[in-house]
């Protein structure tokens, strides 16, 4: 009604300007196609609205960590600086995809590999040879009579990592020779070098403690 409302109108105008700019950028990247594909039923007014549906990953523009446009959420159409450089990451775009999640809502990278959903390049260096993952589980007996044992899977780790990442600095490659403790892991040693940092969090106990131990019979 007074000065404040004029200011509000101005704000709205500014915001819609931003939205329109965003919209036109998205359009030029090629949402026109998907709009025609989806709206078969002749709702003349609606296609324009669909383009700015914020829940549609194809219509969102993501910024990379330095604030530059990194691309749209459509993995088949990544016209970004990062893409052209062949690397770079845009976490916001990742989180809008329908990749499988763990029980904390974090992207479940192990599941993605098991389900063959991605095909990462083995190396930035095209001449480097790709090694097949090492399919070897190592049983790590947990101290304590009732604590489930840990199965350490080489397969998923060597899908992502080279042997030298872990051997010999983090783990001596010999079963049972590392004197691992859970307290040490929580303090950032052994598995805690990565888990809770770049791999699934330590709160997800059962993903490591996956091999039930028979409790001692005498007690109950």
């Amino acid at each position: 009604m007074k000065a404040s409302s004029t200011r509000n109108v101005l704000k709205v105008a500014l915001l819609s300007l931003v939205a329109v700019v965003g919209l036109s950028m998205t359009c030029s990247i090629g949402v026109a196609e998907s709009a025609t594909a989806k709206s078969g039923k002749g709702d003349a007014a609606k296609p324009a609205e669909k383009v700015i549906d914020p829940t549609d990953v194809n219509s969102v523009i993501y910024l990379d960590t330095s604030g530059k446009p990194a691309g749209v959420g459509d993995p088949n159409r990544p016209p970004s600086v990062a893409y052209r450089a062949g690397r770079g990451w845009h976490p916001a775009a990742l989180s809008a995809t329908n990749l499988p999640r763990d029980r904390y809502g974090l992207i479940n990278w192990a599941q993605i590999v098991r389900d063959n959903l991605i095909k990462p390049r083995p190396s930035l260096d095209p001449t480097e040879e790709e090694m097949d993952p090492l399919d070897m589980d190592v049983l790590i007996e947990a101290k304590g009579d009732y604590v489930d044992n840990v199965i350490y899977p080489h397969k998923i780790h060597t899908y992502w990592l080279k042997c030298e990442v872990c051997h010999p600095q983090i783990f001596i490659p010999a079963q049972g020779q590392n004197n691992i403790t859970m307290v040490g892991i929580v303090n950032g040693q052994w598995c805690g070098r990565c888990h809770s940092k770049i791999a699934f969090p330590l709160t997800d106990c059962k993903r490591c403690h996956s091999s039930p131990k028979k409790p001692p019979e005498a007690k109950k």
């Binding site: 009579d145 009732y146 604590v147 106990c205 403690h209």
Partner: peptide
């Protein structure tokens, strides 16, 4: 036991030390 805590019983019940409502089970 820790096994049962990890499986979501006792201290590790879903609204307790297995949730953001209380400190996590790994803080021995």
């Amino acid at each position: 036991s820790m096994k049962k805590n990890m499986e979501g019983q006792f201290c590790g019940s879903p609204n307790c030390h297995n949730s953001p409502k209380a400190f996590p089970l790994y803080q021995c």
